[in-house]
Design a protein around this nucleic acid. Structure first.
Lengths: 123, 123
DNA sequence: ACAATATATGCGTGAAAACGAATATGTGTA
DNA sequence: TACACATATTCGTTTTCACGCATATATTGT
């Protein structure tokens, strides 16, 4: 049942913050490191977990791996992503993550613009 | 963060079925046993897990323990309960659980009617 | 007080998860 | 080719979870 896998992905704080950031557009591993301030290993491990359950997709762009939400998310995933965004509106942790987003993205604006076109619209 | 605890509660199939059934009104342990067809111990253990995280409430009614969703659920919980109900609309497992609900309830209509007034409205 | 019923709790085990540390892989560049 | 950077994978350890089994507790009826 994919719904269970969605909740499994959502039930860890680091993963939930990653997923939430991805609802705003694609990001690469170093962005998560900067924004979440957790070690690279930890980020990669959680991304592997999400990949295995098909909650995120990734593609290589030079040395970077660009992660995004599925281009064609299931109805369940889409519904839950919207729900998540409702729920975290006023949460300081998630708000703070979003505030760090523009700065983190600025430097790689080039590939991000291109990658963004491949993302699902969950915002 | 309560949101994490919500997803922790949602990420096991048995618990998710319990929670889903509770969105239709209060139930006691034996109902879950009948509907889910899992051993009493397993039901009670999952209910303890949910109680600990304040996703369900319970009160004694004679020999029965009546479980229900919180009378005053948090915004996050309420949002996620609605989301859950959207997601499982067409899912055979959850639909089948609902179909067994009226029969399971019939015999204890008396205390259920009374208990129902204490439940939050998530339907 | 006793038996029957409903439910909860404690224990042991195996599996999964979380995480840091070390290491491996892939890519761009000198 | 060699080196630096970005990312992934493996390993060992600790914690949490899921579950069956046995047992304890609470309530009702006799």
């Amino acid at each position: 049942m994919q719904l269970i896998q969605i909740y499994q992905c959502f039930c860890d704080e680091t993963r939930l913050r990653i997923i939430h950031l991805l609802t705003k557009g694609p990001l690469c591993v170093c962005h998560f490191q900067d924004i979440l301030e957790v070690p690279q290993t930890k980020v990669s491990q959680h991304l592997a977990y999400l990949r295995k359950r098909e909650i995120v997709e990734c593609k290589r762009r030079g040395a970077w791996m660009i992660y995004s939400l599925p281009a064609q998310p299931s109805a369940e995933l889409e519904t839950n992503l919207k729900c998540l965004q409702d729920c975290v509106q006023t949460n300081p942790v998630f708000r703070s993550d979003l505030e760090k987003l523009p700065a983190a993205r600025e430097n790689e604006a080039a590939w991000l613009d291109e990658a963004a076109s491949k993302t699902c619209d969950c915002s």
